[in-house]
Design a protein around this nucleic acid. Structure first.
Lengths: 341, 341
DNA sequence: TTGTACGCGTTATCAA
DNA sequence: TTGATAACGCGTACAA
C-alpha cells in the first residue's frame, strides 16, 4: 500500500527538519522550545535546517499535542469604543516577550454573544481568558469555571470573582464626579447616558446617590438611551434634557463622547460653559484636556488595567497564587474648565 | 499494558459523545459540521449527548486534521486608531453566519512587526489573510505568496496586488481636499501631518500636487511629525505651523484628530473659522459633522472596506475567482462650515 | 447514510 | 543530552 499524498500543503514538517539536520524529531522540537537543553552543535545544525527549509511550526499540532494553545482569549463589548481600544493596547503591551497570543472577541454588549464566543474560544484551550465586566451569564460562569484556566474579569470590581478581577467601582466614579458638580455650585444637574450597559447603570447609581444625599435628585434630570454612544448623540440627548428641564445648569455624561457633543451644542447655542452650563464626562479621553473649554472627566486607568490583567494571567499560568484576587485600581477625578465656575 | 492517563484535561471527546449516543465517532463529526447528512434520529441522539456531556469541539484537533483553521488572519497597524476600529467592525460584520474566526494582529505601523506576526499566523494555517496597505516587505510578500491562501490588502490600492486589494487612492484624497480649499479661496494652505505612515505620505503627495498645479506650493507650509496622531498634537502642530508661516489661512490635516485639535486651538486663540482659518481633516469621523463649526473632511468607506474584504476572502475560500483583483471604493469629500468662506 | 482505518504534526513519556 | 514510541482529537478516503 503506497503512502497517500500528504494532506497539508506540502509544507516542511519537524520530521523534514530532523532528517536534514541528522537528528531525531523530538530533538528539533526541544531545540525550538528549550534551546538550552540541546547541545550547541545540534542546535546550530537544526537552526540551519530550519532556515533552509523555511520551516514554520504548526501551532495547531503543537496545541493538540501539548493540550494548551499559548493563547489568551479576550472578550470585550466593543472595538469601536476608545475605552476598550486602550484596554486592548494595554493587553498587547502586557504580553511582552512571552510567546502568548491574544485572540480578541467582540461581544457587542451581549451576554448571549459572550457565551457563544466563549464556547468557541474554550475549544481552542486557551491558556487564560480575559473578559469585561462582572455581569456574565450563569452559563458563561459555568463554562469558565470548568475551563480550568485562569480567568481575569476587567474594568470593574465586585464581590464574587470567577477567578481574578481588576478594575474600579463605577458607582464611586459616578458619585465622585457628581459630588464635584454639587460642590462647584450646580444645582440642577442632569445625567446623560447612552448604551446604558451595566457599567453605565452603576455610574447612574452613583450619580443618583450623590444627588439624593444632597437632596437634589429629580427623576426628570435623567436622560438615557440604549443607543450606542456618539458625539452627535450627546448633542441630541442634551437638547432633550434641556427641553425637559429648562433650568438645567450642569450635565454629567456617561462618557466623553457625549460630553464633547454637549460642548459643541453649547457652543452652537451660545450657552456659556461653565457659566451657564457645567459639563463633566467619564473616562478622560485625551481630547478632554484640549477641548475649549477643557472638560472635567473621570480618568480611568484603562491601559494599565490591560497590562496588569495580562500580568495577572501570566502569573497564574506560571502557577503562582495571586496576592489578591480582586484589585481595585481606583480612578482620578480631573477637574477642568468646564466645571470651574 | 494498561492505557496511560489521558493527557488532556479529561474533557469529553468526540468518541465519548459517540459512545453515549451509540453511534460512530465520524457520525458525530458529521452531525456537527453537516447536520443535513445525518439522519434526524441520530442527530437528535447526538445533540442530546453533546449537551449532557458538555462537549466542546477541539478546534486545534480539527485544524490539524483538516489542514485548515477556519481562521482569517487580520493585520492592522493600530487598534487605537478609530479608522481601523471601524475596519475591524466591518470585518466582523462581514463574517455573517460563516464559522470563520478573526485573529487580529497589531503591527504598530512596523513592516518588521508585520513579518513577525505573519510568521505566527501562517503557523495557524489560516483560511485567508487580510492586511493593511500596500507596503509589505519583500519577505512578507514571499511568505504570503507561499501561504497558498487568499490574501486581501485593504485601505489602499496599487498596481501590484499580492492577490486581491480593496481601498482607495490616498493621493487622490489629498488632492481633492486641497483643491477644495483652493476653490474656497484659501491661498496659504498648510499641511499638518502626524505618524506619516505610507498612506499619510501619499495624502501629502496629493496635497503637494494640487498646490503645485495652482502655483501655491511652499515647503514651509508642511508641518509633520512621526509621533502618533492625537487631538493635542493637532494643537501643537498648528501652533508650530502658524509660527513658521504667520500668513497661514487654512490647514489640511492628515486626519480628523488633528483637525479637531486645530479647531479647539482656533477657538482658544479666537481665530475665526472659517473666516480667518479654514480647516479640513481626513476620514470623516462622526464628530466632524457635530463640531462647531462643523469640519470639512474626506469620508473614507472604512466599515464597508472591512465588510467587502471579508466577502472577497470568503468568495476566494469558496474557490470563486474574483471579478476584479483590485477594487477602488473611492471616497467622498464632505464640504462643511470649517471651509465655507 | 454510516462506519473503518489511518494520518495530520507535534509533544509527553520513558528508556538509553 | 538524545531518541523511539505512543498519544493528542479530529477529518479524509474509501468501503459497505
Amino acid at each position: 500500500m503506497r503512502p497517500r499524498t500528504r494532506r497539508g500543503g506540502g509544507r516542511p514538517t519537524i520530521a523534514d527538519v530532523a532528517r536534514k539536520a541528522g537528528v531525531g524529531a523530538i530533538t528539533v522540537s526541544r531545540a525550538l522550545r528549550e534551546p538550552d537543553r540541546v547541545s550547541r552543535e545540534l542546535r546550530e545544525q537544526i537552526d540551519k535546517a530550519v532556515a533552509e527549509l523555511g520551516y514554520v511550526l504548526d501551532r495547531n499540532a503543537r496545541a493538540l499535542a501539548s493540550a494548551r494553545a499559548d493563547v489568551v482569549a479576550v472578550l470585550v463589548p466593543s472595538l469601536t469604543n476608545n475605552v476598550f481600544a486602550d484596554v486592548v493596547r494595554g493587553l498587547y503591551d502586557g504580553l511582552g516577550d512571552s510567546h502568548l497570543q491574544l485572540h480578541i472577541g467582540n461581544t457587542h454588549y451581549s451576554g448571549l454573544e459572550e457565551e457563544r464566543l466563549l464556547q468557541g474560544f474554550i475549544g481552542q484551550r486557551p491558556s487564560a481568558v480575559v473578559l469585561s465586566g462582572i455581569d456574565q451569564t450563569a452559563t458563561s460562569r459555568a463554562i469558565l469555571k470548568e475551563a480550568g484556566c485562569p480567568v481575569v474579569q476587567i474594568m470593574e470590581i465586585g464581590t464574587d470573582p470567577i477567578d481574578m478581577m481588576i478594575g474600579f467601582s463605577h458607582v464611586e466614579g459616578g458619585r465622585a464626579v457628581t459630588r464635584h458638580l454639587i460642590e462647584a455650585g450646580y444645582r440642577r444637574i442632569g445625567f446623560i447616558g447612552a448604551r446604558m450597559d451595566p457599567r453605565s447603570q452603576r455610574r447612574l447609581a452613583g450619580y443618583r446617590a450623590a444627588l439624593e444625599e444632597a437632596g437634589l435628585f429629580d427623576l426628570r434630570l435623567v436622560t438615557t438611551t440604549t443607543a450606542p454612544s456618539s458625539v452627535s448623540l450627546g448633542r441630541e440627548l442634551f437638547r432633550d434634557a434641556l427641553a425637559k428641564v429648562p433650568t438645567l445648569d450642569a450635565v454629567f455624561c456617561n462618557n466623553d463622547d457625549l460630553a464633547v457633543g454637549v460642548l459643541f451644542e453649547c457652543n452652537r447655542a451660545a450657552l456659556a460653559v461653565p457659566g451657564k452650563i457645567g459639563i463633566a464626562g467619564f473616562n478622560d479621553l485625551e481630547m478632554m484636556d484640549v477641548a475649549y473649554p477643557s472638560i472635567t472627566s473621570v480618568r480611568t486607568p484603562r491601559y494599565d488595567i490591560g497590562r496588569r490583567a495580562i500580568a495577572m494571567a501570566r502569573a497564574a499560568i506560571a502557577g503562582e497564587r495571586p496576592e489578591q484576587r480582586v484589585v481595585d485600581t481606583g480612578f482620578e477625578l480631573m477637574r477642568r474648565e468646564s466645571t470651574a465656575r
